[in-house]
Design a binder for these strands. Structure first.
Lengths: 188, 188
DNA sequence: AAAAATATCTTGACAATGTAAAGATTGGTG
DNA sequence: CACCAATCTTTACATTGTCAAGATATTTTT
């Protein structure tokens, strides 16, 4: 084996190298050629696995989103009620990005997210963290036996998400204290 | 006059051309050389006015922020109370970016914003839209004669801003309906 | 007004990058 | 073993940001 051909699992290695570069230097410092070099393959090798840079970036984003999801799910499981789950997930949402501000820009700057507020249908292609939030919010409404107009439910869901997402955004952009009294984020 | 030298007001022309390109094609399609070409000058001409690409982008951002501020101020003046002003400004905040989603990414993706929640001091370097919001929120507290703990005031300000900013973010990323019942954004 | 200094612009060059094309190497399949 | 498809390399080219040297216009100085 000439040792250069057939890396073994180049696809995953490229993704991991990409995550690392974004962590250390930010997205603007990431280039296809650097990622390839980090994996010790030629600069055009990535094209066997990704159509173009955009496709590699999408794969890296998926990878980061998985980590994000895993933390959200952990938070959800730790909670003993749907209400508490929403609170924990909100805190996790903000702290995840406060701890890695680069991820926030990276995930949300260019990526188009899919998200449907409609409460009576499921959309498997929706942004996974949003799906989890929506499910938990539904549980919460059931748990508390809250009867709301259809449109108010949508508005309530959007309110929670936008509050939390906005808080994360501002925390990342300003470095502002995130030790916020979380009672203010509460659902009402 | 050899007609090529001394454009007249190249600096502003470069900024305007940059805004136009971002409007039409998005930030990733913007290059120094294209901006220069749009102004019919050589590819290195911008370096007489801007240290590097980053500095031109900063100038373009300032220009867009000015438009944003002008709309916010218009909304604020239209209102007949501070409470209504916050509502109007919130609606304007969201609709401005809903109408130009490219601006949202452009303004907030790379730019570090400065913002101080402290209610008893003024920070002239804070992000102008935030300064306006903070002032209006102060007026609102006075207007309604609301007495709050210092920390609660900060939290209230942050809550309004993050709600509105988060809503704008989600509107831009998802294209979700922004015809939200604005009562939900209200201040309490 | 002539000369000198400065600001503004052009030309030419270079390195980094994304990407396409052609070919080399390898592992698997019939 | 022969063949094929997947994977990787090499070569090539256009785009881009940036720098350096020089040209031209404007401003300032004398």
């Amino acid at each position: 084996m000439s040792d250069n051909y057939h890396h073994g699992n180049l696809r995953q290695a490229l993704i991991d190298a990409g995550v690392k570069i974004i962590n250390e230097d930010g997205e603007d410092k990431l280039s296809l050629r650097k990622v390839a070099a980090a994996c010790e393959v030629s600069h055009a090798a990535p094209y066997a696995h990704f159509k173009d840079k955009e496709e590699l970036l999408a794969a890296i984003k998926s990878s980061v989103t998985e980590r994000f999801m895993s933390e959200l799910e952990k938070a959800e499981k730790k909670a003993q009620s749907a209400e508490q789950a929403i609170l924990f997930m909100g805190q996790t949402y903000v702290s995840f990005f406060s701890n890695n501000p680069d991820y926030f820009k990276f995930l949300f700057a260019s990526q188009k997210l899919v998200a449907h507020l409609e409460m009576d249908k499921e959309y498997p292609d929706d942004y996974p963290p949003f799906i989890l939030l929506k499910q938990t919010y539904k549980k919460y409404l059931k748990e508390k036996d809250i009867k709301m107009d259809y449109k108010d439910q949508e508005a309530g869901l959007l309110k929670i998400w936008s509050s939390v997402h906005g808080l994360a955004a501002i925390a990342c952009m300003t470095g502002v204290e995130t030790s916020v009294d979380w009672n203010h984020i509460e659902l009402n």
